[in-house]
């Protein structure tokens, strides 16, 4: 579903991703962990071209998104993204946030878009907040709306960029619960997170990144209980 080949990314002279190769299969939940500055967020942001790619290829369902002829806007409708800082549109209500892109990009009818938006709000447990503005929501509620907003485009893949890192501890659970439900429904997911419990419970595979490389990858139990690399061991000993 996603194929990453020899991906490199530099910011000026600073090479953040040095040589990334990965293959994410349909319905797989891949969790990316690693110390800050390891390039895991940049890696995720390369998958929908929020970062320009310096070298290498990223293929989404066989389409090379680094190819200049690829319509990236079309690809992005199939790759949803959830951000650490939620990035809800503050001038629009919850319902409008969710409906905006289906209306403007996919040209869905208003009544259908609304129906779908309400259905998604039910799914994330926020039906009663449809007409609220983002400012009046808690962090956990905001993030659940952001997930609903991404799902409204009916993506085939969901990218999560540290979705719980900006939340108060008591709100982490409600967001993870929505993500678990998505995983159970068979959504293909790439999740950058510090929630090791989530990685172990939901992840099909864990990638450990450090210094711009994927240092180690394995099924969660193996990687957490029996890490092979020194750097993986050092990182896990600090966070577990």
């Amino acid at each position: 579903m996603i194929k990453v080949e020899k991906l490199k990314k530099s910011f000026g002279a600073n090479e953040v991703l040095k040589d990334i190769n990965a293959h994410i299969k349909q319905q797989e939940v891949v969790v990316v962990i690693g110390p800050s500055g390891s390039g895991k967020s940049t890696f995720l942001r390369c998958l929908n071209l929020l970062e320009t790619i310096t070298a290498g290829h990223v293929l989404i369902e066989g389409v090379d998104i680094t190819d200049k002829k690829t319509d990236i806007n079309k690809i992005r409708t199939e790759v949803g993204m959830v951000f650490q800082q939620f990035n809800l549109f503050p001038h629009k209500t919850v319902l409008e946030n969710i409906m905006l892109s289906p209306l403007k990009v996919k040209k869905v009818e208003v009544s259908k878009a609304k129906e779908k938006a309400l259905e998604l709000l039910r799914k994330v447990g926020l039906e009663d907040k449809a007409n609220a503005y983002p400012d009046s929501l808690s962090g956990g509620q905001k993030q659940r709306v952001a997930i609903a907003r991404a799902l409204a485009m009916q993506p085939k893949i969901m990218l999560f960029d540290e979705p719980t890192s900006a939340l108060d501890p008591e709100m982490v659970g409600e967001v993870l619960e929505v993500m678990k439900q998505l995983a159970r429904e068979g959504m293909t997911m790439v999740v950058v997170t510090h929630e090791m419990g989530f990685a172990r419970e939901v992840g099909d595979r864990v990638l450990f990144m450090d210094g711009g490389y994927i240092v180690e990858e394995n099924v969660p139990n193996e990687l957490f209980d029996n890490p092979q690399h020194e750097r993986t061991k050092a990182f896990l000993s600090k966070v577990l």
């Binding site: 929908n48 929020l50 806007n73 079309k74 992005r76 409708t77 790759v79 949803g80 993204m81 951000f83 800082q85 990035n87 809800l88 549109f89 905006l100 892109s101 403007k104 990009v105 996919k106 952001a146 907003r149 991404a150 485009m153």
Partner: peptide, 15 residues
């Protein structure tokens, strides 16, 4: 306006 607003909009497929 926060950069994240543009990123969120673009990530939803908007031009």
């Amino acid at each position: 306006i926060d950069r994240g607003q543009m990123e969120a909009a673009r990530s939803l497929g908007m031009t």
